[in-house]
Design a protein around this nucleic acid. Sequence first.
DNA 1: GAGGCAGTTTGCGCCAGCGCAAACTCCCGG
DNA 2: CCGGGAGTTTGCGCTGGCGCAAACTGCCTC
Lengths: 232, 232
Amino acid sequence: MPLDRSLIAGLPAFSGLEGSELDSILAQACSSRFPRNSEIFGQDQEASHFFLLLSGHIRVVRTTPDGDQIIARYINEGELFGIAVAMGRTTYPASAVAAVDCVALSWPNSTWAELQSRAPSFAGSAYQTIGSRLQDTQERVVEMSTQQVEQRIASAVLRLVTQSGRKGETGIEIDFPISRQDIAEMTGSTLYTVSRLLSAWEDEGIVRSGRQKITVTDPHALMLVAENRRRR
Amino acid sequence: MPLDRSLIAGLPAFSGLEGSELDSILAQACSSRFPRNSEIFGQDQEASHFFLLLSGHIRVVRTTPDGDQIIARYINEGELFGIAVAMGRTTYPASAVAAVDCVALSWPNSTWAELQSRAPSFAGSAYQTIGSRLQDTQERVVEMSTQQVEQRIASAVLRLVTQSGRKGETGIEIDFPISRQDIAEMTGSTLYTVSRLLSAWEDEGIVRSGRQKITVTDPHALMLVAENRRRR
DNA sequence: GAGGCAGTTTGCGCCAGCGCAAACTCCCGG
DNA sequence: CCGGGAGTTTGCGCTGGCGCAAACTGCCTC
């Protein structure tokens, strides 16, 4: 089945391209479904494709030699991922796992060079993506170096909520299942500490949370926690 | 004074370029001296130029709103830095300070687009630089999340020694002045802890260290420390 | 609707690493 | 050669956050 250009026309990665360009880019792409918890590519695997997430949420995970896992980031709808080719890498530096059922476009890496010359604005947006991920990661290093666990966890939850939030009954909720363990792996802490803090915040009326679910009821108060300015 | 192409001909960033191309790239560049401890550009400053370090060592520093400093990385001879333009940024995300007297080439950002089309392999190497910095930074996040302070500091010293090492009398030494505080800012620890560990390692015969100076006498033993495999 | 499993909560004890304070040492400039 | 300041060392006490263990809870399957 042919892919419709309306799938991608609105995305920033494709802004400034002609409709006909879009069609020819799409002609080389392939659309796939990835069920929840399936692996889209694995760490250190030969990089063969790059991807664009059409719908769903993806967890990017790095695993250390002795089995510790770290969540590098979550990918949201409309974002590029697996763009090892744009960094001149031949393997994926982390694995990508569908946090919910996902649909993604993929292109063989061999199309990168041609795409870059035919649609430089597309390549440019890939480079910008990498640049902003470098910024985010640096920011994370700064947080881990200077802030204590409570602030880091508050920041992480805020980021999740603003980037992947959905309006719910009582506040903004993270719109994919996320466990205490996941938050721990994003913040360099432990599932126990995350659980204790979420409980404490719930007592203060800042969040409501349950099994793989977090709703922020008072974002402003959570910002104060993240900045270590909350009065207790 | 005209710049000689031999300055840059050997650098990976310029591999695969004609001599005449080199000359025309150099014609747009400007060479500057930066005395030790001077600032080359400041964090959040409008990005006007990108740079190539010809000689010396540069410290890239991020400062938080409440005054904490983090060393993001050190730049060695032959490396690009300040390439905000390649990431589509308009400001420098960190400041750059000369760790020793330095000489660097600089180009106005306005030359980037032209350079990219005339010497795509040069631009490509800039993108690769950004990609590998992203990898390094992710690696640092993983270390900070999973390893304890002693291992992180050992890894940091090893990295400094392999990237900026110089053979000395009794071992390999870091060839620019570096304080306990600097190491603390690279590893998310404190100058006290760094000092204590260096003292302990000195007792074990792994390093020798003094004022702003570190010499690794037994790199293999230090690797064991970094991997948490040393027998005590 | 009855398990059962995956995820969560909470008590408890512990220790790695922080951070102050004070002393020390080395280097540099005059 | 002397003085001062920057960088370093070390003792000491404290505590944030870890990590085990055990109980609990809610969801999904059969």
